Amino acid sequence: MRNGSPSFGAVNDTASPTASIVDLSTRMPGVRNLSDLIAQQRIGEARSIVETASPDPTVDVALSAVTYERTLPSPGKIFCIGVNYGGRNAEYKDGQDAPTKPSVFVRFPSSFTGHEQSLIRPPESPQLDYEGEIVAVIGTGGRRIARADARHHIAGLTLGNEGTIRDWVRHAKFNVTQGKNWDSSGSIGPWMTTLDEIGEFENLHLTTHVNGELRQDDTPATMAYPIEFQIEYLSTFCTLEPGDIIFTGTPTGAGARFDPPRFLEPGDVVEVSVPELGTLRNGIADEVIS
């Protein structure tokens, strides 16, 4: 949001305190947001505009002057991969061997908010937990995508906090839907980094801090099911489409795994970081019931 109106653009020099946004909504008629850009297969066109555009102070703004919505305002299918990083299976004390296929569940768009927005703890439960993740954004759709071709179907990567209401994922057997879909319990952002700026996925260093304390620390190199395999697997049973997103798994160290558990409370700040992707930051607030 810029001056109260929705807009989107490309960030120049994300590491600089004077970073700015090249506005694309005014330079690309018919494209309202990143979801539209991906659906219309126009990322290459946007890149060319950014590389050649002259600064325009009437529309281009400082990064510090915007309010963030979730990175994709209208995501398609939202897949989440569970129990994927090294050591995660051992967190489940059920005596079962490591699975041979990934755990998959889905979430709804309304369960996510944007960077610098509050994650909402509902009055029905105090067990709001964090899960820092790398999120893959599908740019080119397909069915039965080969693992070797998977990277060509990714528009870019962003960050996610796959916030969970823990006691609600245990209301019944074989489902987690209730605990994973509370409004604004998770987040996506701050932006999407295109693949030309990302090297090997295995080298990405994912960390999650709560109030400055390191809680999660890992790389995709320890994933049981790498990102490319996830695309191959998911596209086997359904067609992946531009704008679909995949939460690719969270490392060990979520609050529920401490003894006693360390759930999020109002005033806490969660930061999910990968150097190449930025930092996704969210505070915590209780839901206001009118």
Rank of each mutant, 00 (worst) to 15 (best):
A10Y: 11
D13R: 14
D23W: 08
T26D: 10
T26F: 04
R27Y: 03
G30C: 08
V31T: 15
S35I: 06
I38N: 04
Q40T: 06
R47S: 08
E51Q: 15
P55T: 10
P57W: 04
D60W: 13
V61R: 14
L72D: 12
F79H: 11
N84K: 13
Q96A: 10
D97V: 13
K101W: 12
R107Y: 00
R107H: 06
F108G: 05
F108M: 13
E116Y: 11
Q117Y: 02
S118T: 03
R121T: 01
E124N: 10
Q127T: 15
Q127N: 10
L128D: 03
A136E: 05
I138P: 05
G142T: 07
A150T: 04
R151F: 04
H152V: 00
H152M: 05
I154C: 02
G156Q: 01
L157Q: 01
G160W: 08
G160H: 06
N161W: 07
E162D: 15
W168G: 00
R170Q: 15
F174L: 12
N175G: 13
S185Q: 12
P190Y: 03
W191H: 10
M192C: 07
I198R: 05
H205E: 02
T208A: 01
H209K: 11
L214N: 03
L214K: 11
R215I: 02
Y225N: 08
Y225A: 05
I227Y: 07
E232L: 10
T236Q: 13
C238H: 07
T239K: 12
E241K: 14
P242W: 04
F247P: 03
A256R: 08
D259F: 09
G267L: 00
E271G: 05
S273P: 00
P275Y: 03
G278W: 00
G278D: 05
N282L: 00
D286W: 06
E287Q: 14
E287W: 09
V288T: 15
V288C: 09
